[in-house]
């Protein structure tokens, strides 16, 4: 009973933060800050800055932030590695590479890519990097070495991306450069629909996996003994975490540390690691974290924007260090 109370309280706090940050994101911006009253008036008038720029941007930041965090949680469960995440394992960078290539290719032929094909390109890249990591993880059982390999894959992909970008037409470079640093600035309402549907469906499927995920927490052998079809389950995990992080990379570029930091903060906050609680909670937490980071990225040096990864790294990287320190001290005791 006490636990259920704690979960509900935590969910309530996160939801409240989400709502507040969401409104702040819509009210504030380089084109002028508005009070809540003004916001309602502007919204009913269909003000383009509110309706076509800030609203989709805030919604996108929230949804993609949630997706990224859940994707990280799935990867951590999969590799039984607390510092796994789409960014450190190079999965985001792999997606970035394929999206950049697809964009350059289509732009050079004068075709604009639609949202679905962006996700598809990104998904292919995610899966390719994931495949590499899986091959490596078969050989390397050590957690930290796996992460190092992931970071290396990330560097290789980023290097190739930069190479590709430098060959692109000059007019495309600015856009590509901004995107490859990670930003929500390109959000629009058309994208938002595709994102909501993709992330929504993936999240429902992920939630349905929470029972085997719970069993998987005790390791593969025990999960198998409990009746989990481990092979099939692992494939689901890979596909879902890849599609979730692919969605983020396709629209916002690679965003660092959300996938590692948020699930951990959420676990400590909720005092549990039960997937059935942590999956929705990570989504909420990721949404809050990304809204906050996006707001900071926009407002800190307004009117110029900094990349979202700059902000998420500043808040996220210390969490990773904290996780590693805590693990070390636990193992000693």
């Amino acid at each position: 009973m006490k636990r259920t109370l704690r979960y509900s309280l935590c969910i309530a706090v996160l939801s409240a933060m989400l709502v507040i940050l969401f409104f702040l994101s819509i009210c504030m911006g380089s084109a002028g800050n508005h009070s809540f009253g003004e916001l309602i008036r502007l919204f009913s008038e269909g003000d383009p800055i509110i309706c076509k720029i800030r609203l989709p941007r805030a919604a996108e930041a929230a949804i993609l932030g949630g997706a990224l965090s859940v994707s990280g949680y799935l990867l951590q469960s999969f590799f039984a590695n607390p510092i796994a995440g789409p960014f450190v394992l190079g999965i985001s960078s792999g997606a970035k590479l394929t999206v950049a290539i697809a964009m350059i290719f289509s732009l050079s032929r004068g075709i604009a890519m639609n949202s679905a094909s962006m996700i598809a390109a990104s998904f292919v890249g995610s899966l390719a990097s994931m495949g590499m990591i899986l091959l490596i993880s078969r050989k390397i059982r050590n957690m930290s070495l796996l992460v190092v390999s992931g970071v290396m894959i990330g560097y290789i992909c980023s290097a190739i991306t930069e190479l590709a970008v430098s060959f692109a037409d000059e007019s495309n470079i600015i856009n590509l450069h901004n995107w490859s640093m990670g930003t929500f600035s390109a959000a629009n309402n058309r994208e938002l629909g595709v994102i909501s549907i993709t992330v929504g469906v993936s999240m429902i499927l992920t939630f349905l996996l929470s029972k085997p995920l719970g069993a998987y927490r005790m390791g593969e052998s025990y999960a198998e003994n409990m009746g989990v079809n481990v092979k099939r389950f692992r494939i689901y995990l890979i596909l879902l975490s890849s599609i979730l992080s692919a969605c983020v990379t396709a629209f916002a570029g690679p965003v660092s540390f959300v996938g590692i930091a948020v699930p951990h903060l959420v676990k400590s906050f909720f005092g549990t690691a039960k997937p059935i609680v942590i999956i929705p909670a990570s989504f909420l937490g990721g949404a809050v974290f990304c809204l906050f980071s996006d707001l900071t990225a926009r407002m800190l040096f307004a009117p110029s924007e900094i990349s979202i990864s700059t902000v998420t790294a500043i808040f996220g990287a210390p969490v990773v260090i904290w996780i590693m320190l805590r693990q070390k001290s636990r193992r000693k005791s």
């Binding site: 349905l208 929470s210 029972k211 719970g214 069993a215 927490r217 005790m218 025990y222 409990m226 009746g227 989990v228 059935i276």
Partner: peptide, 11 residues
């Protein structure tokens, strides 16, 4: 976790 084989979809 030992009850896994007996619980429903969401466990």
């Amino acid at each position: 976790s030992g009850r896994y084989p007996y619980t429903g979809t969401l466990g």
